[in-house]
Design a binder for these strands. Structure first.
Lengths: 160, 160
DNA sequence: TATTGTTATACTCTATAACTATA
DNA sequence: TATAGTTATAGAGTATAACAATA
């Protein structure tokens, strides 16, 4: 069977919201207040990028600045993120994970991922591998959503 | 490189929200009021399942009944969906796409998919094919979210 | 009693517009 | 003028609880 970009696009439209719905429900069902998905994603970004600015977080998340500001604000209130000044450019803020934030990130990630891993293990090793590779490829396509369009072939994902 | 269910799960947590964010923005940026994602998904379901009940739609979408009720209500108000009685069981309602709903579904799908297809076409044919296969596999894992856990190996996707 | 669906209520996510402070 | 971020406001998406109608 020949599959084209159109098939892949159609499946993205169908499957991504489906899986998203699952993730959202899982995260909400954790005990302790838990993290929302944007909160969770923000923490992951800050885990990887020390001293990020709000704009950087917003761009990575594909959200507007006010939306991101509120999201981060909630995390600061919960003491999961530390917001401090950035002397080199006093318009900017500097964001980083607190020790508590790191713990919460690990805890939350572990619980939700555990359920996903169960599901993945229903699949064969080849299927799991194919999914990992495909998702890494998609990540390269969709990171930095607001950036320019690159027309070269992409060679799969790195990072981790 | 060996990839496990844990790699796949981790990538799902990272990439699915990323792509979701892209889809949401694209759908919102269409001219004419356009469809929200749950509305869009509801129409797709009704396109495939004539005379569905509200519960069936809710289960497919992985949403609670009141949430789904409101979503459908908006579609009925916009005359994209026809809600009628179901004489065999008068507690139920019968939902189906109107002619307008079908048109709107096609239009909305076409616009958003066109952007996705552009992105897919940055990739090689093999990458596109791998993504399509992986997503079809994921679909089989996540459809009917509230159903029992099946422990057999799954053989990829059918349907379309 | 159990099931199907709606209404009431509240909270989160998201956006745009208007604003402040800094460059 | 331009950029970084916040505040104000509004709308959509989601949930739980309480309810009505039917089985």
């Amino acid at each position: 069977m020949l599959r084209t970009g159109s098939d892949a696009a159609s499946l993205i439209m169908e499957v991504v919201p489906l899986v998203m719905s699952y993730i959202r429900t899982e995260m909400r069902n954790q005990r302790l207040p838990g993290l929302s998905i944007p909160q969770f994603r923000s923490l992951i970004y800050l885990y990887r990028h020390e001293d990020a600015s709000l704009s950087q977080v917003a761009e990575h998340l594909g959200l507007q600045l006010p939306t991101t500001s509120k999201t981060i604000d909630a995390l600061v209130t919960r003491k999961l993120v530390i917001r401090s000044e950035y002397p080199e450019d006093r318009r900017r803020i500097s964001l980083k994970l607190s020790a508590t934030g790191l713990e919460e990130l690990k805890r939350s990630r572990h619980i939700t991922e555990a359920r996903l891993i169960e599901k993945m293990n229903i699949l064969t090793a080849e299927q799991q591998s194919g999914i990992a590779i495909s998702l890494a490829t998609l990540r390269t396509l969709f990171v930095d959503l607001n950036k320019s369009k690159n027309n070269d072939k992409i060679t799969g994902g790195s990072d981790g």
